[in-house]
Nucleic acid binder design. Structure first.
Lengths: 192, 192
DNA sequence: CGTATCATGTAACTAGTTACATGATTCA
DNA sequence: TGAATCATGTAACTAGTTACATGATACG
């Protein structure tokens, strides 16, 4: 029964990967906006302030020549702990593509086995969706209005592609079992 | 500069396809929740009330044997006009997958040429995203933390699949130029 | 007769956007 | 000096969720 991904943990997770400024976080998320959407500054900056007040991150002003100064946020130990507490929560049964993408971005906070489990869970969920969509596309082929027919076909294409990606990624992970960073990001350092 | 898809027009569009109840709208959207997310009753019912007060839909209680009665909503002429006014608006440059899917569901309100244009616009947008993602995946291959690398790879796979779907759908539409329903849903009845 | 599903609704809250404001730096 | 980009921020608003409440019908 994991809570929906508020930008809170997404931001915290991005800071954990590397100290950054709010502006840079925005820039990064904008590059993926067609998949996850990117939060406005009006929610991003207050989020950073809140994280700071709770002691999950620290700030430092970094003046630079030739550009205005930035505020660089760095995660604290308390922040790492809070983040781990969140990523360890199981995902809801009906996870949206958006939410999955967000968790994927933060997956370096997962242990190796945690990542595998996450991907496998996703795989079984999307498989169900694929079956449902295929039934809908086939059964309502002629009678249905074109809008829904198109939408179902589109969804089916994406589901199929996602499953293919999940399979190849899972296989890749099983071959080269320990990409450095997966362990590095996680204090638990789970067994292979 | 189209506004973000509030559930308002999604609901109105679904009613335009076929008179339905709030409960059924919820059920339908839940079946696609992994792509678009489905609104809660707490936002769905107030939305229906608002549409009704504005005269965009009418309600009728439909009692049935063996099940509790439902309220069936039907679109009005004013509603059709409002819906067309919305679907005719151009989409924003950075349209999310979610928004595209929503517009796709409502695409039977578009004229034939409008649909083609919509798909072609999407095609050029996703092409740009694909190029960007490919660059990111390739350039940051080794140094990058695994989370982002995975996320970019996932995004790239989806972008590629979407482009393939767009191409095949556009070709299909150009071959059989007028699927009945596309015209039926639109009062403008554009030229072939 | 209690529980499950179907079906609708509301009130309190939270998360988020929009629109604005500020200021530094660069470039024409 | 005025515009463009970089960078941060806030206040007012809107959209949405969560949690609750109601009631009908069916099933065991």
């Amino acid at each position: 029964m994991a809570k929906t991904v508020s930008i809170r943990y997404l931001v915290l997770g991005l800071i954990s990967q590397q100290p950054t400024s709010g502006y840079d976080i925005k820039r990064f998320l904008k590059s993926l906006s067609w998949l996850v959407g990117s939060p406005s500054f009006g929610s991003l900056y207050p989020t950073l302030h809140a994280l700071r007040e709770e002691g999950l991150v620290t700030v430092e002003v970094a003046p630079r020549q030739d550009k205005p100064p930035r505020k660089i946020y760095t995660i604290t130990d308390a922040g790492k702990q809070a983040l781990r507490g969140w990523t360890d929560q199981p995902v809801a049964a009906e996870t949206s593509l958006r939410t999955f993408m967000m968790r994927l971005i933060l997956s370096n906070n997962l242990s190796y086995t945690g990542l595998i489990t996450h991907l496998q869970q996703r795989r079984s969920q999307v498989t169900i969706c694929q079956v449902t969509l295929r039934q809908m596309v086939e059964s309502l082929d002629e009678t249905m209005d074109s809008g829904r027919r198109l939408a179902f076909g589109y969804g089916l294409a994406l589901a199929t592609a996602e499953l293919a990606w999940l399979d190849s990624t899972l296989e890749l992970l099983s071959q080269q079992p320990l990409p450095m960073e997966v362990v590095k990001g996680n204090g638990v350092t789970s067994a292979v």
